[in-house]
Design a protein around this nucleic acid. Structure first.
Length: 430
DNA sequence: TCTGGGGTCCTAGGACCC
DNA sequence: TCTGGGGTCCTAGGACCC
């Protein structure tokens, strides 16, 4: 197991653990880390398929279905393959790659095991995605050890699961996040308290989380290219780029942001649940589009019921061809988790924009508006909606089908009109 | 030779209320 | 025939993240 411990202090870089420990004996102030699992999906696949180890592995949608790369193993990255790349392009760059559509249940399971390790080390863990989490190990009430020692132990414990991670450690989230990307895979990059500004100043503005393509362009037009320049930029200039967030972005670029790591109860905090699909071939027949909508609705309904959420807002998203699309949304008279209620509403929304010439590349259906209390439904069998008792029966049917799917798999049952789209469901490879 | 799917948050304009 | 202003909700679009 290799640990690349990179620490930056002023002009110097120290690469040995012993030196690092002697220098970090007296960490004061906040110590915030970001753990990022290395090429996570691909690494889990290689763990589950030992014969794939050392080979280029790509997790993503097939080129024939207009897929993109989700994760590429480091072996595949050497060929220039990276996340979000169209699969067709990835195939050309690395024709010998092993492809898989992925197994998200398995990734979630491995993720949960990693998060349990973090939670065992500190109560202050904030998961930000399936493969990333912030943690607070500031010397104090809970963390008594040297933060670097804790981070190193986290890495060893994760390695025992058969996968690896990179960690960035510093005084706030911005520093931790950028540091975590500095040295991958299996990196531990520590930014000594007090050296934030030196660390950040030379970096391009796009390195900071929250600055994407659009903001980067606007900054460029203002002759702001680095975080150092952002830190000292004119107030009015920053305001034109970031609006109300100008002050916060400057603080981040200066390295003086104060961050708190707040454990989020993911269940209570869900804002929307949706499902969308890009079709291998554009849909032109309205009956096909309605069938696809029904299938999306089944998926959303099942997930709403699984989480005990009821929503009032239905959103339909359509993409016609590259670059153009629309979203339309509507409030329902009552919150619901029943696709028999919200799918017809979605169809009515679609009526508003449907023309005979419409070519649908992508279709999406999202439910939101769960309310201030989270929209948790307490009485499962007493849904009130505008269609009364009839749809209550239909909901009971939906609940029954949920059970069947849970036992026999998601595509085991489906309403007839949706069945013809089963082929478009990305399946786990054999 | 093409560009996924899961989300969150913000903005701006209009409706509506007081 | 004069037309404020604050607050909130809704809608559509877009930026951004992994």
């Amino acid at each position: 197991m290799r640990y690349s411990v990179t620490m930056r202090k002023g002009e110097h870089t120290y690469d040995t653990t012993s030196e690092l420990f002697s220098l970090f004996g007296t960490w004061t102030g906040p110590a915030i880390g970001l753990m990022d699992l290395d090429a996570f999906f691909a690494s889990v696949e290689m763990l589950d398929h030992p014969e794939w180890r050392g080979k280029p592995v790509i997790v993503g949608g097939p080129a024939s279905k207009r897929g993109v790369v989700s994760t590429a193993s480091y072996e595949a990255r050497r060929f220039g393959v990276h996340s979000a790349m169209p699969s067709a392009q990835a195939e050309r760059l690395c024709p010998q790659a092993i492809w898989t559509c992925g197994n998200f249940d398995r990734y979630r399971e491995m993720s949960a095991r990693v998060m349990a390790i973090l939670a065992d080390e500190t109560p202050f863990v904030q998961q930000v995605s399936i493969d990333e989490a912030f943690f607070d190990i500031s010397p104090g009430a809970y963390a008594k050890e040297n933060p670097v020692a804790i981070a190193k132990r986290m890495q060893s414990r994760v390695a025992e699961l058969g996968i690896s991670c990179s960690i960035g450690l510093g005084v706030n989230k911005t520093i931790a996040k950028i540091a975590s990307e500095r040295d991958k895979p299996r990196g531990l990059t520590v930014v000594t308290p007090g050296t934030e500004r030196t660390f950040l100043a030379p970096l391009p503005v796009g390195a900071m989380s929250g600055i994407g393509k659009a903001a980067e362009e606007r900054l460029k037009r203002n002759r702001i290219f680095t975080l150092g320049q952002l830190a000292v930029a004119d107030d009015m200039q920053l305001r034109t780029v970031f609006g109300a967030n100008a002050d916060m972005m400057r603080q981040r670029a200066m390295g003086t942001e104060k961050s708190s790591v707040t454990p989020i109860d993911a269940k209570e905090d869900i804002k929307s649940i949706g499902n969308e699909r890009t079709f291998a071939k554009d849909l032109t027949d309205r009956a096909d589009v309605d069938a696809a909508l029904a299938l999306l609705g089944e998926n959303v309904g099942r997930r709403l019921r699984a989480k005990g959420l009821i929503g009032t807002t239905v959103t339909v998203k359509v993409k016609y061809s590259y670059g153009t699309g629309r979203t339309i949304q509507r409030q329902l008279p009552h919150p619901t988790d029943d696709e028999h209620v919200f799918v017809p509403a979605a169809k009515e929304l679609l009526d508003q924009i449907w023309t005979e010439q419409t070519h649908v590349r992508l279709l999406g259906l999202t439910m939101s508006g769960f309310g201030v209390d989270g929209g948790i439904q307490t009485d499962l069998f007493c849904t009130v909606d505008e269609r009364g008792a009839e749809s209550s029966d239909q909901r009971n049917l939906a609940v029954t089908l949920d059970e069947v799917r849970k036992k026999f798999g998601r595509s085991s049952v489906s309403y007839g009109r949706a069945a013809r789209f089963e082929d478009d469901i990305v399946r786990h490879p054999k």
